[in-house]
Amino acid sequence: MRSGFWTLTGREFSAAWIKGVVCLAIALATAISIPLLFDWLAGASLPGLPATAERALAAQVADYHLYLWANWYGKNLLQFMLVFALIFGAPALAGEAASGSMGFTLSLPFARRQVLGAKFLAGAIWLAMIALISTLALPLTSDLVGKPVSLALLLRGLPGTLAGAFLAYAIAMALSAVTNDMVKAGVVAAGILVLLAVPGLIPGGSPYSFLTYMAAAGPLVPPSWVWWGTLAVSLAIMPVYLLARWLFLRRDY
């Protein structure tokens, strides 16, 4: 007899395929466009651009690695992964509760811990796949346009991004355990993420913001902070997950 946990994880994974494929397509299209746009940006004259933006652009086009890093980890992947984490996390439990199929799931021989674990794992796999596949598109496209880059260097940013995304996902899932309204769960989770990002807006506070580590922003924090910070964000996932479990175990369906 196959373990119920893996059976349910497989179902949860396949149930999210439309969502997963759409999110992947968006991230992938963006990742592919970044190397393709480099030459155009490098040669473009953009009249009316503020002086600071012009200086930032000049610095980026002077170093292709920095350009990739800034436009992928620094801007796009970070935002995508936060939104995707909410898209996957908020309906995870609330959606099934609202549709009524949670009663069916929980009447099958699954422990609630397994149900939560399977749902979390399935969504986490999708998020990891989206981040990894779209990030892999950067060096592949760079090769195609004749600007080879180090794959290892690019992948170094992923742990921080994924840690932040999983934290956001766990927060959304915890909120999803207390309501049948997935929109409400997503909006409240987004509000909590905004609060968690506030330290990054205070001068000198960026090491205390999880977004810093999601952006894999080596230039903003000392190198040692990047790994300690990523570890701290990763460790924060566990209590949030346990909170989600505690809430889910106590819920009536």
């Binding site: 009524g100 199929s101 009663g103 069916f104 009447s107 021989p109 699954f110 609630r112 175990l249």
Partner: peptide, 23 residues
């Protein structure tokens, strides 16, 4: 209880308005 896997393997349940996985 909520974690009674062994029990649920021995129990079949048909609720009042069954909502199965729609897809």
């Amino acid at each position: 209880g909520p974690d009674g896997v062994g029990i649920r393997q021995r129990v079949g349940y048909v609720p009042e308005n069954p909502v199965l996985y729609p897809s």
